[in-house]
Design a protein around this nucleic acid. Structure first.
Lengths: 224, 224
DNA sequence: ACCTGAACACCGTTCAAGT
DNA sequence: ACCTGAACACCGTTCAAGT
């Protein structure tokens, strides 16, 4: 009886792995990494916390599945871009991952946390093929692909961390200009360089900056 | 009376912020990220969990202090290297951070988690000065320094994650060769590139590979 | 000023019991 | 087969009470 009531609340939809992962993503997007708890998830799905464990082994597996789903969506978008050069392909994949992390900041944390899983492999494969197409010598392909992917990972975790901060601050622009103010006020001797970077920090565009880094690495790859 | 007994156990040493941070680092090194709890820390320091809060605001501040201490030690080592070229300086700083993360895997997670704090600033400053010395044009300095630091961050979080995995596996070599075997067995169409990278993955040296990535970026920076 | 240790409000996960 | 919901073994953090 009580069961039936519960099921009715979720409109007869059975609890499935897919619906659980989808709800987890919604929760992560809305509340951030800390927002995903089995109790909150259970409430959202009108069920008990324990029920989720029948479909998903544990929290790690749930996060892995969420990551995989979001990344594969981003990469299949990138697939449709119809790039004409390998350089463009690298940029498309990179921007795809960047935008996915922008839309789902928890993804940055997640990718940095479990680099060996399937989402990471897909990214590595896509980048690697483009590197091959760039006619990078066999021996340099590993380093080239890894450098690109590691850079993407670094920016991703930065963005995830920044998103956590911005949550506290009112918005991103304000956050950047506050940080820039801190940089500008640093000790003139100890932080001579960083001080001069306050203005670029305040005015930069994250996405453009990210792509500039990709281009820098591509230039290094192309160099004999 | 009971107080006196406690104090005697820790040999009369007062509980200080420094001793707490040092104990936290030991715990993190020995047990990993999950090993640092206020209860474990209190036991190690022969005190109560609540006592720690008189010296440290919360867990985040504690992790920040631990990160700062380890990074500044690594960077001051790098300072003593007596590099002759800016390229060498970049490599020395990069390797210093790499080795610090190698010795303290939790550091990789931590740096990726809170990029705006003081440890990250010190790294950025060191790299930035070297970039300036490379005579990179003003407008490109921000991108150049950020790209290097983000790459270092990406590798760092990878290494932290790998260290977590290796804990489960017997040792690193075994872990790499197992992962390589998985790569080699991937679908021939879907993972054409990654399959060919199984051998490089198995045989590569982390440190050398990391430096090769730094050199790649440096080559891109030097390119007109 | 500094410390104690119980208590609070959470977690992930398990599992007997239900349908 | 699938779900419930109480229970277990943890967390970080607070705080009245002690010295």
């Amino acid at each position: 009886m009580v069961n039936q009531a519960r099921r009715a609340e979720r409109r007869g939809e059975a609890l499935t792995r897919e619906s659980i992962v989808a709800a987890a993503i919604e929760l992560l997007d809305l509340e951030g990494d800390a927002g995903l708890t089995f109790r909150a998830l259970a409430t959202k799905l009108s069920t008990g916390a324990g029920a989720i464990y029948w479909h998903v082994a544990n929290k790690e597996e749930l996060l892995l599945a969420a990551t995989e789903l979001v990344v594969s969506a981003a990469l299949s978008n990138a697939d449709d871009a119809g790039d004409t050069t390998p350089r463009e392909t690298v940029r498309t994949i990179a921007v795809g991952v960047f935008d996915a992390i922008d839309a789902h900041p928890w993804l940055g944390t997640q990718l940095a946390r479990a680099p060996s899983h399937s989402a990471m492999l897909s990214i590595f494969e896509g980048i690697g093929r483009a590197v091959q197409a760039l006619e990078v010598p066999q021996a340099a392909q590993f380093t080239s692909a890894m450098t690109l992917v590691n850079y993407m990972l670094g920016v991703g975790s930065q963005n995830a961390a920044n998103a956590r901060m911005v949550d506290a601050a009112a918005d991103r622009r304000e956050f950047l200009s506050k940080t820039a103010a801190v940089w500008a006020a640093l000790d003139a001797d100890e932080y001579a360089f960083t001080r001069t970077m306050a203005a670029p920090l305040r005015d930069h565009d994250d996405r453009a900056e990210f792509l500039a880094g990709i281009d820098l690495i591509l230039a290094g790859i192309a160099r004999p």
